[in-house]
């Protein structure tokens, strides 16, 4: 009885304190990101940071389905491509600003994810994975062959005519600020989700779907919502990529590699954690950039080779990913030093 009164009393106050600390930390990180993004002058570094922010957004979005929900989704390239093509096509055919096209793409991706999810999420594990791969290929084939709308294999070019209203800027920093905003949006959503009902339900479904359903977790509903949110974020990333790179084609925005990359970064960083995917993205993009710098484009595949090996090792020996390792180290340190303090 005693234990109960103590724990109910302590728990909320502890939570409030740690929540306050988390929010403060979050505000500091976000502030630092925006300041860096607007002040950074080196073109190369701006580009690197843009790549990191975009990759982190994609990995973070994938993590909602794959990490929290434990669904082996390998078709997120489809949503990336849909985002890129929707805004670009709407701009070229109807002169609709990509800012609105971006939202249209996200909405389209979310609707499609709901539709696909409604029929595939009842499939388990590897079957779901295979279906998502097939679905992406189907989207890629359609885009490749719908020449009049999508430009087929040649793809689409976006003319560079700086005009903020048309999501086109004269400096790279502005694109970077948009990328930071997307990342902040994705990770704030994940952070809130982790602390609220949806996150709890997804975790339970990942751990044991049958047990979760037996205590009333509406499995299909929770998974559909997460799938739609994840797809929408990835589609936003697609538009951002299109506006930044000024050209898209089926290979650059719809290939299976893109789906794998999101999963890889998320898993290496720490599946089902809030900031794990960001760590994975930082590791992946910087190592790729460094290796390319040292060895030139010829050995670009070296990065993929190393990252693939790292991915396998993480899966086999450290499923918590980089974040899990960091937490373990911290625990060990606090155990050593914390112990000393309490003895005193």
């Amino acid at each position: 009885m005693n234990t109960n009164t103590i724990s109910t009393r302590i728990q909320p106050s502890l939570q409030a304190a740690s929540l306050g600390r988390t929010v403060t930390l979050w505000v500091i990180i976000v502030g630092a990101l925006y300041i860096t993004a607007s002040r950074l002058t080196d073109e190369h570094l701006v580009d690197l940071m843009f790549q990191i922010m975009l990759a982190a957004s994609l990995a973070g979005a994938w993590n909602i389905v794959g990490g929290f929900g434990g669904q082996i989704a390998l078709g997120h390239a489809a949503f990336f491509g849909i985002g890129a093509y929707t805004s670009t096509i709407l701009f070229q055919h109807y002169h609709l600003t990509p800012w609105i096209g971006m939202l249209a793409g996200a909405l389209f991706a979310a609707l499609l994810a709901t539709l696909i999810g409604a029929v595939t999420l009842r499939l388990r594990g590897p079957f779901f994975a295979m279906t998502t791969v097939a679905f992406t290929e189907l989207v890629r084939i359609i885009v490749k062959n719908w020449d009049s709308l999508t430009g087929g294999t040649r793809g689409l070019w976006i003319p560079w005519e700086p005009n903020p209203w048309n999501f086109s800027f004269s400096d790279r920093n502005s694109y970077l600020l948009v990328a930071v905003t997307l990342a902040v949006l994705v990770f704030s959503t994940t952070a809130i989700m982790a602390k609220t009902k949806l996150g709890f339900l997804l975790n339970a479904l990942r751990e044991d779907a049958d047990a979760a359903r037996s205590v009333g977790v509406k499995a299909t509903r929770a998974r559909l919502i997460s799938f739609a949110i994840s797809a929408a974020f990835v589609a936003l990333g697609g538009t951002l990529y299109a506006q930044y790179s000024l050209s898209i084609d089926p290979t650059s925005v719809l290939s299976f590699d893109i789906s794998i990359q999101m999963a890889l970064m998320s898993a290496v960083g720490g599946l089902g954690t809030v900031i794990g995917p960001a760590l994975g993205a930082i590791a992946a993009v910087t190592s790729s950039s460094l290796l390319r710098g040292w060895f030139g484009g010829e050995l670009g595949a070296l990065h993929l080779l190393l990252y693939g090996v790292l991915f396998i090792l993480v899966m086999l020996y450290a499923r918590g990913g980089l974040l899990g390792m960091a937490i373990n180290v911290k625990k060990r340190l606090t155990r050593r030093f914390g112990q000393g303090q309490s003895d005193v």
């Binding site: 009902k197 339900l201 977790v217």
Partner: peptide
Amino acid sequence: TIGALSRCNDVA
């Protein structure tokens, strides 16, 4: 908590 979430909407 997962069990209790079948009846209430907020985690707290």
